[in-house]
């Protein structure tokens, strides 16, 4: 079955720019972050000058997950991950806690919270 999505994206001018930003990297030297990991601007960190990084900085005045950053800044997930990890590496962003997949207390809290809505 044909899939035209990628052709469309390739043709749009905005497609290439994010990849140029990461210099083609798929990982940051700073490390790997989970797509649901929330990040927020570190207290007192200066705004980066580069446009996309500044956009992330603005958004992360309140905590946002990498997936949300990707969607809200319209950048592919792989790019958002690398840029966010870079900003984490240089201290601009801090990473908030994600739950461990075996955290019973958290699962119970999720269950109660969702059941009672």
């Amino acid at each position: 079955m044909g899939n035209d999505d990628d052709t469309e994206l390739m043709d749009s001018g905005s497609f290439m720019r994010p990849y140029l930003l990461t210099g083609g990297r798929t990982r940051s030297d700073a490390g790997e972050l989970a797509v649901e990991a929330m990040v927020a601007v570190s207290a007192g960190a200066p705004m980066p000058s580069q446009k996309e990084l500044a956009q992330i900085y603005d958004l992360c005045q309140t905590p946002n997950s990498i997936a949300e950053i990707s969607a809200k800044c319209s950048m592919p997930l792989g790019v958002a991950r690398v840029l966010v990890a870079d900003l984490w590496g240089d201290g601009t962003l801090e990473v908030l806690e994600t739950t461990r997949s075996d955290d019973i207390a958290i699962v119970r809290r999720l269950l109660d919270g969702i059941r009672n809505r």
Binding site: L9, M16, Y19, L20, G24, T26, A67, E68, S70, A71, K72, P76, L77, G78, V79, A80
Partner: peptide, 11 residues
Amino acid sequence: LRTEAKMTSAA
């Protein structure tokens, strides 16, 4: 929200 999931050798 929608995002694009892959970037392997995109460039």
